[in-house]
Design a protein around this nucleic acid. Sequence first.
DNA 1: AAAACGTGGTA
DNA 2: TTACCAAGTTT
Length: 291
Amino acid sequence: MASMSDLHDPLLRWYDDHARELPWRGPQASAWSVMVSEFMLQQTPVARVLPVHEAWLARWPTPADLAAEPVGEAVRAWGRLGYPRRALRLHAAAVAIVADHGGEVPSSYDDLRALSGIGDYTAAAIATFAFGRRHVVLDTNVRRVLARVVQGVELPAPAVTKAEREVAAELLPLDEPTAATWSIALMELGALVCTATRPRCEACPVRDACAWRAAGHPPYDGPPRKVQTWAGTDRQCRGRLLAVLRDDPGPVHRSRLDAAWTEEAQRVRCLAGLVADGLVVPAGPDTYALP
DNA sequence: AAAACGTGGTA
DNA sequence: TTACCAAGTTT
């Protein structure tokens, strides 16, 4: 069993030396900037978030700025980040922040958690990284790092377990600012060194305390991890249809959507789904637009 | 509790 | 080229 100092001191020191400079990090970043980044980073790599985040903050520097616009503008500005419902939810969260929190991003976990699009991870992340609160921040990076270093396995279980949460809670430093740095350092290590494939163990600051390394890097042997299919799926169809709307300034005729996806039954079903989700609105007898 | 939900980079 | 993966949330 590794002692606390075997992990904490080397990792905190490593973060101090190797942390990337990102626009949503550091004392100059607003809570809103942090919140926008967390929405965009849900399942989307940093490199693709960077330019969209910058444009977003330039256009909507506060929640009130976004809340004042039609939600369709948020969907359009979301661009090709993927999972466009996140844009809907971010807009809804901005509206709620104006209505219920005086236009300021709330600082408590519970208030954050109550906003649309904010689950356990994002609430903890915003409370921690924007406000310095002390919460367990358990994202895919942290889970992987702890699975390896503490549990000695290559990858964590498909879903978060109680044991995992307990390990993370025990390791979280008591001091608030240190807890925040610890969490972001764990995430950074997972993103840069302790990666899902081909981890750079030789560059790892906690390799001497790593249970997975000590065990000889045994391969993952848990339940099979499901692979997302893509070609021909509703997800791809929805993406195509929404791209047509997004790339055109005004309402578009149904024929434009028909041209984007040949299989009719699926196209009709997906368009109905987009409308039901609030990502698309009928704008006339045969035209559609962003909301 | 499992499935749905986008997109593009990398090996 | 196919497979895997990327700071999850919702139903």
